[in-house]
Structures are given as C-alpha cells and as structure tokens.
Amino acid sequence: MGFKLLSKLLVYLTASIMAIASPLAFSVDSSGEYPTVSEIPVGEVRLYQIADGVWSHIATQSFDGAVYPSNGLIVRDGDELLLIDTAWGAKNTAALLAEIEKQIGLPVTRAVSTHFHDDRVGGVDVLRAAGVATYASPSTRRLAEVEGNEIPTHSLEGLSSSGDAVRFGPVELFYPGAAHSTDNLIVYVPSASVLYGGCAIYELSRTSAGNVADADLAEWPTSIERIQQHYPEAQFVIPGHGLPGGLDLLKHTTNVVKAHTNRSVVE
C-alpha cells in the first residue's frame, strides 16, 4: 500500500471513529477524501466538511520552486461564519470567499490569524475590503508590521502568557507558548472536538522541520505538551499544512522538532 493511500485511509478511519463516538456532533463529509496538494491548482481553494458547521479550507501556493498546501478553518456561528487564517495570499483568499459563498452561503463576518507569517495573514486586506472584521493577538499584529505583512485590524486580548485561553464565538483560542513562531495560536472547536494546530503542528508525513527561522526550538516541545494537557479530548487535529489526523500529530511534531534540534547540535 502506497504512503499517500495509507495517509488518506488514516484520515478516513479517524473521521469514521469520530462519527461513531459522537453521532450528534459529527456529520463528516462523505463526498470524498481530504484534498491534497496535487489536486488543488494554485489560485483555487477546496472546502472539506469535518463536522456539522465545521470545515477546513485548503489552498496551495508556490514557494521556492515548489507547491505547498495550506489549511485553515471555518466555523459556523449562528447565521454567520468565523474564518481562521487566510488562504495564503490575496488571490487565494478572494477564491476562498467565493467558494464559501458557493458552498455554504453564509457571510464571513470575523477572521482570526493564528500567527504573523504570510500563509496566515496574506489576504487580510481582501477580507477587510469584503467587510470582514480581522483579528490577531497584539504580538501577531506587531510582528506582521515588522515583517511588512498585512496586519489584522483588531487585537485579541488575554493571550499574552503561555497557557492563556479565551473564548471567541464558537471557538476557544489558546496560546501554548512559542513553537513554530513566538505568537502562534491554537484554535479548538469544543462542539466538535476539532483542534486546529496551525503551523505549530505537523502532518504525519512530514519528517523535516522546514521553516524554523522564527521558531523557538527549545520551547516548542513544552508548548505541545500544554496543548495535549489542555485538549486531551480532541479527536480531529488539523495541521497548518497537509493531512489531518488525531492527537498523534502532536507527538510526531515533537519528535521531528527534537530530531532537528539534535542534528543542529551535532553539526
């Protein structure tokens, strides 16, 4: 069995187990497998329904001669939608809004960016022009300005110390501490036991640490421990890039980060 097929099978099995364990909360999309990078042309966006009122959005972007996937989250909030992270750029984010209108038909009224990198804030200006209120932590807003990236308009308070959590509509926002970046936030959907790890969490097929220019490698494993301790009931975990899975993604990420750190020390 090929690795790609095995990865998709694991996603399907995880979703099936969740649907059985929580039949009222989960209505997993039966329309197909989780979209992969090879299936999404740059400039297009796919939506994948995880649970009743919960979707991931998947886009792709060219970077350094390669094409990478990027995940975000959409959560229903009454007759409105909360968006977590842009679709990595203005063109993708405009396509995301169009796809949401086509498939869901509810307005996106608020959006949260989970850290300051372009795959999370690139497209904020498109959201703002569409009347979406954009939010991020003060740290993310400051770092985005320093980096020359787009800056969300509103500040999220109460997320300055490791372990801080605040309720934001249908989700809980959690600051686990520094990891992929010093400002990275985690998003949890309690009604569906869905954990969105953003770039602080890796997919299972990833074996290298990737972009760690703004990471705190020493603190990252401790931050992941905080996530595990705060959300032990999480059933569906979405990484910032690639295929979702279960809580095993947290341990896998820790292993990859520690291996990278150990290699760096040896070198």
Rank of each mutant, 00 (worst) to 15 (best):
A129K: 10
L47R: 04
H252K: 02
H180R: 04
Q61E: 06
A179G: 12
T140G: 03
A200N: 00
I151S: 07
K251V: 12
F174H: 00
E33H: 09
H117A: 00
D118L: 07
Q103P: 06
L5C: 15
Q61C: 04
A19C: 14
E150I: 04
G169M: 02
V126Y: 12
K102E: 12
K8S: 12
R76N: 05
V11Q: 08
G197S: 04
A144Q: 03
P232D: 07
S264K: 13
A95E: 09
E219R: 07
W220G: 02
Y48T: 09
L249A: 01
T182D: 11
F168I: 07
P41W: 06
V194Q: 00
R46P: 05
P69L: 14
N255A: 12
L81S: 01
R76E: 10
G198M: 05
D183S: 01
G53C: 05
L96M: 07
S139R: 12
A15I: 15
F168V: 05
I84D: 00
G131C: 05
A94M: 15
D85V: 00
I224W: 02
V42S: 12
T182R: 14
V67P: 15
T254M: 13
D214V: 07
D248E: 14
R46N: 07
S208W: 08
I227S: 05
A21H: 14
E145Y: 14
P35E: 07
R141Q: 12
L5H: 15
I17V: 11
G242Q: 02
K91C: 06
C199Y: 06
S31I: 08
L81P: 02
S161V: 13
L204K: 14
A129L: 10
G122Q: 12
P176S: 03
V11I: 14
T109C: 05
L247W: 15
L5G: 09
S27M: 15
G122F: 02
Y175N: 06
S181Q: 04
E101Q: 15
P221V: 13
L24R: 11
E39L: 11
I186F: 06
G53K: 08
M18E: 15
H241G: 01
I74T: 06
L73G: 04
H241V: 01
P23Q: 10
A259C: 05
A179P: 03
E147S: 14
L6G: 12
K91T: 15
N262D: 13
E33L: 09
I186N: 04
L73Q: 02
P170E: 06
E147M: 14
V75C: 03
R263F: 12
V257H: 01
A234N: 02
T60E: 05
S27K: 11
S161W: 10
I186P: 00
P170Y: 01
V171C: 00
Y231A: 02
I100H: 00
A200G: 04
G242Y: 02
E225Q: 13
A94V: 14
I151G: 03
T14P: 14
A95D: 07
L243K: 15
G53L: 06
A192H: 07
H57C: 01
R142C: 06
D29Y: 09
